[in-house]
Write a protein that binds this DNA or RNA. Structure first.
Length: 606
RNA sequence: GCUUCCGUAGCUCAGUGGAUUAGAGCGCUUGCUUGCGGAGCAAUAGGUCGCAGGUUCGAGUCCUGCCGGGAGCACCA
């Protein structure tokens, strides 16, 4: 927002140093870290160190020399438009803006651009974010929710940064786990179907757990039990064979039950305000992936060891000419001719690149699959896809429960829907006195927004590569550094504006609007507003939703402090009151923008 | 064995080279509501940033080694 001033000052410093034979290091500008005034600053330590090496420091320490240079440079700068004063402190050159002009510029930028404040320029690259890849025939648990939240926020960030963004989901709809559910249903529950989308989806998980109990080898089995278990196992294998052979009845059963799962998934994604653009199914890339194997063999990338009774493999390190073990060797086709996870990922990537013209492909996948994805990217590179360089794995640590790891097989999972329902219940139980004037439908809606806000923020406010132990009381806390804290700042801002019946407009901004003694809380708040664009950009470039989560809290924190310390509606001076209303309106706007990037709703009341 | 992530306050975590004093939240202690919504604000206590070297004018931050913990390592996904 202040590049012009910065450039001007930088030119002057460079000119001065060139004229005086000072070997100037690169200037790195940062906002001044003290509260009370604004500006930007740069240090001269590196320059001082350079000078010392040239024997020109006159036995001064680096900080002393830096201070000397800062003082000299300071003399060159004065009277620039918008700059109030310049100081040289501890080796730093601090350049302060005129408060009223700075405040005006920030608030004006926000109100003028509204929802687009902070948006990056349109870029030519297309980004695809792949997330929400649960298996069908199981259920969506809290670990999937972390994946979905991270993926959606990343997609929102890249979109906001100016990339054309495609959201992709890739459910796993085949394999032994799926067949196990089909077998269980067919054998014991044929014809049954619980009412309700979630009930039906969750019921499939119940079948899966029961089936695994029946099929699991137990200690001290009687011969009869062993025989029974082996008979079940044979039936399951037969079911798999039929599915593979395209048996119409098994396929039909598979389709119907798969739809139950997908219906539930779609409803859950809707609760999370996620709108997937492209659905890839594992079953769709199964056949193409086998064709790819032949292509890779023909190109000399894969080695066919089937004649020796082996599989088709890719010796990745060897093909890349690496001497040290890095990607190792991986199988892309089993000895029996069936494809693997890796094979399908290759087929999927090809489709992304060729059909969707994706330049940059982001995979939001559990961090444990890091090696697998590195191998896939390496093979794509060998295969000749330039986009392989721009494949990025956004890994995230796994979510476990206080009692241990989640396991669908054992049924030890915390389902997203359970947490969702609990969240809504808790919000409603808090909320009675204050929302008398709201209808029960409005209260329900707000409860959902706040419950989800708490849950999503708890997922985003920890670095993605850290593991999380999911404690429901912590995830659904509404106090302190939480989603509702940020939402509450928005509610308060909204409440003030509503009481004043204030419609912000940039035409209300005059050069003298902020020409009064700003409280330090006002200054801190404006400082936070001004940082939104660069934080949004940083979060997108570094693929780090956490950056935005941290920022949103800092902004809300600045507003809450302002709210308590600085009166708005009670301000007697009409001009100051108007200025503060504009500031509140700008804050509300940036809170909305930040919350939106975080996939959290901004309720007007709560 | 190799690879990778992590180790910061009692607990959960921010902070990836620069500033007075390493920051939040929870929990602990204490104030604030005849006030724009207290899901809040203000304040107190609590840290040799795992250990040891190194690079640098400057290291919680970069490099090396060690200690401790998690995860992954070809016919599962």
């Amino acid at each position: 927002m202040f590049q012009k001033e910065q450039q001007l000052v930088e030119e002057k410093i460079k000119t001065y140093c060139a004229a005086n034979d000072i070997q100037l290091a690169e200037l790195k500008w940062k906002p001044i870290p003290f509260s009370g005034e604004w500006g930007f600053a740069t240090s001269f330590f590196q320059t001082a160190a350079n000078e010392a090496k040239r024997g020109r420091s006159e036995n001064m320490s680096a900080p002393q020399k830096a201070q000397e240079i800062a003082e000299q440079v300071k003399g060159q700068i004065s009277g620039e438009a918008g700059i109030r004063h310049v100081e040289a402190v501890k080796g730093y050159l601090n350049i302060y803006f005129k408060t009223s002009e700075y405040a005006l510029r920030v608030v004006d930028e926000v109100l003028k651009n509204g929802a687009n404040f902070g948006r990056g320029k349109l870029k030519s690259e297309t980004v695809m974010v792949e997330y929400a890849q649960p298996n069908t025939h199981h259920s969506f648990h809290i670990g999937h929710a972390r994946n979905a939240a991270l993926g959606e926020v990343l997609a929102r960030l890249t979109e906001f940064a100016g990339y054309r963004t495609i959201r992709a989901s890739y459910p796993g709809d085949l394999g032994l786990g799926v067949i196990t559910v089909l077998w269980m249903y067919d054998k014991f529950y044929k014809g049954q179907e619980p009412a309700g989308v979630h009930e039906r989806g969750q019921w499939l998980l119940k079948l899966y757990v029961e089936a695994n109990q029946l099929l699991e080898k137990k200690e001290n089995e009687t011969p009869a039990e062993t025989a029974q278990r082996e008979a079940y196992e044979a039936e399951r294998r037969e079911m798999y064979r039929k599915w593979d052979a395209g048996d119409p009845q098994v396929r039909e059963l598979w389709h119907v039950t798969r739809r139950w799962s997908l219906d539930e998934l779609r409803e859950i994604l809707q609760m999370l305000d996620i709108d997937i653009d492209v659905w890839f199914f594992e079953s769709d890339v199964d056949a193409p992936s086998k064709a790819i194997v032949d292509e890779l063999i023909a190109k000399g990338i894969a080695d066919d060891e089937r004649p020796q009774g082996g599989a088709v493999i890719v010796k990745i390190d060897e093909k890349l000419g690496l001497t040290k073990e890095k990607y190792r060797t991986n199988v892309i086709l089993r000895a029996d001719g069936t494809s693997l996870y890796l094979t399908k990922d290759l087929a999927l990537a090809k489709e992304k690149f060729e059909k969707y013209h994706v330049d940059r492909s982001i995979y939001v996948v559990d961090t444990r699959q890091s090696l697998h994805l590195q191998q896939a990217f390496a093979i794509l590179k060998l295969w000749g896809f330039a986009q392989a360089e721009k494949c990025h794995h956004l890994g995230y640590g796994f979510v476990s429960l206080p009692e241990g790891a989640m396991s669908s097989r054992k049924g030890r999972v915390t389902l997203f829907k359970e947490v969702y329902d609990e969240a809504v219940k808790r919000v409603l139980s808090l909320n009675v006195e204050k929302s008398v004037e709201l209808s029960s439908a409005e209260r329900e809606k707000i409860a959902r927004q706040i419950g989800m806000g708490a849950l999503i923020y708890s997922m985003l406010s920890v670095d993605n590569n850290k593991d999380i132990v999911f404690h429901i009381d912590e995830a659904l806390s509404f106090d302190g550094r939480t989603g509702p804290y940020i939402q509450n700042a928005h509610v308060r801002a909204n409440s003030i504006l509503k009481k004043a019946n204030f419609k912000p407009s940039t035409s209300a901004l005059q050069p003298e609007t902020f020409n009064y003694d700003l409280a330090k809380q006002e200054i801190e708040l404006i400082e936070q507003l001004s940082q939104f664009p660069q934080k949004a950009q940083q979060a997108a470039e570094e693929y780090r939703p956490l950056v935005m989560a941290t920022y949103a809290y800092d902004l809300a924190n600045a507003f809450h402090s302002f709210y308590h310390a600085v009166p708005v509606l009670q301000t007697e001076d009409e001009k100051i009151k108007n200025a503060r209303l504009l500031l509140v309106a700008a804050t509300k706007q940036v809170l909305v923008n930040a919350l939106h990037l975080l996939d959290i709703q901004a309720p007007d009341a709560m």
